Computed example of a mutant assay.
Amino acid sequence: KEHLHTREQAGLFDISHMKLFEVSGPGAAALLARACPLDAGALDISQSKYTFFLNEAAGIIDDLIITRLGDERFMVVANAGNAATDEKHLRALAADFDAKVDALDRVFLAIQGPAAWAALARAGIETGSLLFMHGIEPRQNWFMSRSGYTGEDGFEIGLPEADARALVARLLEDERVLWIGLAARDSLRLEAGLCLHGQDITPEIDPASAGLMWAIPK
């Protein structure tokens, strides 16, 4: 039921187990280029990119989405089970760069499905100018991206707890929106052919072996 509802209308997910890191400073782009097979400095402002933290053997420590927020500011979205490892890895690398890594305390929500944009608009959140695989800061201490992990159009919003409670209440007033559990999120991403770290990709598997070379710029 939850799986089909997301495909047909809009599913609301609490993904606060995932972690947001802000990387900033004159060396932020260079730090991320060292940590990932990504030229972070070539990203446009608000552009997001799927990428990886790799170990010395090119094994996938974690898969991530990095968004450029400004000339010297980036948002890194890390997976839940790897957040502590990711933070340790990134901070260790940051010692060699003029860059700061801040772990943000945010509620993180995702709304996915064909009615997601309309439900957000009804709740007072305009999404029309936000393109797929882009992210913005629509309000103070908010981060919103348009990517998704279900194969549907969708949005992710990181925001303070009080704001999150108010937004959730407004969204759930819309009959098109239902809370969706993580089991349905897993079946949705499987149906869409999306990888799960720890299951499909691990530190022992490199991007080439995982069929993910499309995510590495030439």
Rank of each mutant, 00 (worst) to 15 (best):
D14V: 02
Y50P: 14
A115E: 09
H17G: 13
G124E: 00
I65V: 13
E191T: 10
D39C: 11
T51M: 03
A210N: 02
D206Y: 02
F52V: 09
E72K: 10
E72C: 12
D174L: 06
A58N: 05
L120G: 14
I125N: 07
C195D: 01
L167N: 10
A42V: 13
I61A: 03
G151D: 10
E152Y: 05
L90P: 01
R34G: 03
P26G: 03
N55I: 00
L190H: 14
I216T: 06
F52A: 04
A169Q: 07
G193V: 10
R185W: 02
A29G: 02
H134Y: 09
I60N: 00
E161R: 14
S16Q: 07
D206G: 08
S209W: 01
L64D: 03
G211N: 12
T67C: 15
A162S: 09
R170A: 15
F53Q: 07
I111R: 07
R146C: 03
G27A: 03
L64E: 00
A183N: 11
L64N: 00
L31W: 10
S187K: 08
S46G: 11
L43E: 06
V77T: 15
F132L: 13
N141F: 09
P217Q: 15
D153Y: 06
A121V: 12
I111T: 03
A10I: 02
P217Y: 05
W117S: 15
A99R: 14
S145G: 14
A42Q: 13
I201L: 08
V23E: 00
L188V: 01
D86G: 05
A28Q: 03
S46A: 08
L12C: 00
E204G: 07
R170H: 07
V77H: 13
F52L: 06
L54K: 08
H5N: 00
F13Q: 04
D86M: 05
G124T: 11
W142R: 01
G198T: 11
E137D: 09
F143H: 09
E22R: 15
S145T: 12
S46L: 12
I157A: 03
G181P: 00
D14A: 02
G135E: 01
A92W: 08
A42S: 06
W214T: 08
R122N: 10
I15M: 06
E126K: 12
C195R: 14
F74L: 10
A58E: 14
L54A: 07
Q9E: 03
F52G: 10
D62R: 07
M18W: 05
V177I: 10
D102Y: 09
H5L: 08
R139E: 14
A123G: 12
I205P: 00
L159F: 09
A119F: 05
K88H: 02
A40F: 10
E191C: 04
R91T: 10
